[in-house]
Amino acid sequence: MLTILFDGVAYGMLLFILAVGLAVTMGLMNFINLAHGAFAMAGGYITVLLMQRMGVPFLVCLPLAFLGAALMGALLERTLYRPMYNKPHLDQVLFSIGLVFMAVASVDYFLGSSQQNIHLPVWLKGRTEIGSDPFMLGMGHYRLFIIAVCAALTVALQYVLTKTRFGSRLRASVDDQRVAAGLGINVNLVFLSTFAVGSGLAGLGGALGAEVLGLDPTFPLKFMVYFLIVVAVGGTSSITGPLLAALLLGIADVAGKYYIPKLGAFIVYSLMIAILIWRPQGLFVRKAGK
């Protein structure tokens, strides 16, 4: 029982880190980026390749996965994404889904289509169990690690967005680009760095998730639906919305598969439909907005 809750939280946290970048680009920059999962996949593959081919330790790989994906995000933002900001949403969707297919095909071509395996360090492999049977809580160390990392990142993100100068610049640029630019804010730079950080977080999520979710070239397609559910249910106006949505989704998914395995895959979608009928704007949306 408690174990299921714990697994659900870990899964939800992972989904949150993977999807938060998407929430930021969609909510703040008003851009629908379906290729978000491709950056997550990039992070995953960076980790796998570094560990397998060069023997880099796991903990060093994580920041590298973040940096690699962020760099890629920055590069693509500058070259491909920026001209798309003012296009209609349909163009954006078609453009980014095209990117996904290209990413899937090229990873398949260069690295093969098989599942990649990560060998975790020994200290992350164990499991701690507390309490006795009906209320036993079994915690995999790796899942504990995921929760800790993701919680730290959430706090940091929330702080940056609400308390720092960069955060207010970002919000200003989103609200009205022209006025923000008139006030001397370099809007392009703000968007560039936001996009890069969002991609980097996805990359980190991909690296952390490779062990739990698996990693193969179809990763961006497999998880696109989950990202979109998180964003749709959570709303895009804050960090807490997607966080709670991801946790809800994670717990519902894990518990559903445990208690009603026959319906396993449906639970998440039914939940989403119910929530969206009840609150079409998403669960945690503030009034007003744009």
């Binding site: 174990t3 998914d253 445990y258």
Partner: peptide
């Protein structure tokens, strides 16, 4: 995506 709940069962 995740075998965890099945294996817990």
């Amino acid at each position: 995506p995740d075998f965890a709940p099945f294996l817990q069962k």
